[in-house]
């Protein structure tokens, strides 16, 4: 039973089981190089959003504005590119414009995150409401900027982030791996990460431990916003366009992956490795189902069912080890 005692190890088993099952059901197609690469191109965009969600959930919050931030950042970048860099120009000439556009997108993401952080920290708004409202505002700005239609016509170099490869590894996969590693290091090896986790475990105790909770929350939501902006850029690159309502199903997916990965939605617990495993199991599952000609809609069904089943499993007490019910329950 000890192997099953952490959500991460349970998840690892699920991931392997899904992989083995899919390989067995459709060995020649699921394990084909083409499928494996296409999976590697598919998941990073929502997986990055799940990383953003993980960070905010660690503090007991949530960021429902990630899609809005991603699309707004992408729309800003796309508008800049479409108006400054003509579609025909060469790769080398387009690079400065690309850097400018990407920089602008990241800044938009960070500012959007800072707004969330201020709403949560200074106004003490519940994160659900703050990010629900701000998400609508961000999406609304993207709609207003574009009039609701897609922005297109970029230099070819835009495609690299979402569709290119580096040493035959898909670039989006590299981006995701780098961000996941960064988040892991941030959460486990920096003062900021430890404080964010502790804040999630008990916000009041964080205040009494002289943690600057306002600054902490501000930084958490800024990072979440910046991650969302990166996801927005990947989506833009893969779609070769930017639009205010891309990826609307990713919000659910991001929450789902974070919770599936063992992040406690009440805060204080979660590991990036769990989230990565959750991403992989989701991708194996949906790819495999694709092979088996299962419709897209069935995927949504299976995702939702998986989320609920995993939460039910997590409520079971797996560790029957030393239940020290000290009579310290006697507090008066």
């Amino acid at each position: 039973m000890k192997v099953l005692s952490t959500p991460e190890s349970r998840l690892a088993i699920i991931t392997i089981a899904v992989f083995v099952m899919m390989s067995a059901l459709s060995p020649d197609r699921f394990l084909s190089e083409g499928n494996l690469t296409s999976m590697a191109f598919q998941f990073p965009e929502f997986a990055i959003l799940a990383l953003a969600m993980t960070l905010t959930m660690m503090t007991g919050g949530i960021d429902l504005s990630v899609i809005g931030v991603a699309n707004l950042s992408a729309v800003v970048a796309a508008t800049l590119l479409a108006s400054l860099a003509p579609a025909g120009i060469g790769t080398l000439e387009s690079l400065p414009w690309l850097a400018l556009a990407y920089g602008a997108a990241l800044i938009v993401g960070a500012i959007a995150g800072a707004i969330n952080g201020l709403l949560v920290a200074r106004l003490a708004l519940p994160p659900i409401l703050a990010t629900l409202g701000s998400g609508l505002v961000f999406t609304g700005f993207a709609v207003a900027l574009t009039g609701g239609s897609a922005v297109m016509g970029f230099p070819e170099s835009v495609a690299w982030l979402g569709n290119g490869t580096l040493f035959s590894i898909p670039v989006p996969l590299i981006v995701f791996a780098a961000l996941a590693l960064a988040l892991h290091v941030l959460l486990t090896r920096t003062a900021f990460g430890l404080r964010a986790t502790m804040y999630g475990a008990n916000p009041l105790a964080a205040l009494y431990a002289a943690i600057d909770t306002h600054r902490l929350l501000l930084r958490v939501y800024i990072i979440s916003g910046a991650f969302a902006a990166v996801a927005g850029l990947v989506i833009m690159s893969r779609a070769n366009s930017a639009k205010a309502d891309y990826g609307s199903s990713y919000l659910l997916l991001a929450v789902l992956i974070a919770v599936l990965g063992g992040v406690n939605p009440y805060g204080g617990r979660g590991r990036v490795i769990g989230v990565v495993l959750a991403v992989l199991s989701m991708q194996f599952l949906s790819s495999g189902l694709n092979m088996l000609q299962v419709s897209n809609f069935a995927r949504e069904l299976i995702w939702g069912a998986l989320l609920i089943i995993v939460m039910l499993i997590n409520t079971i007490n797996w560790q029957r080890r030393h239940v020290t019910t000290t009579p310290s329950g006697e507090k008066s």
Binding site: A191, L194, M198, A201, N202, L204, A205, Y208, A209, G268
Partner: peptide, 22 residues
Amino acid sequence: RLTEGLFLTQSIVRNVSVGRLD
């Protein structure tokens, strides 16, 4: 202690060292 003083779901080490991170 339970609501203000300690981070109950965090490790003993972390509870001691939270003020010494910097």
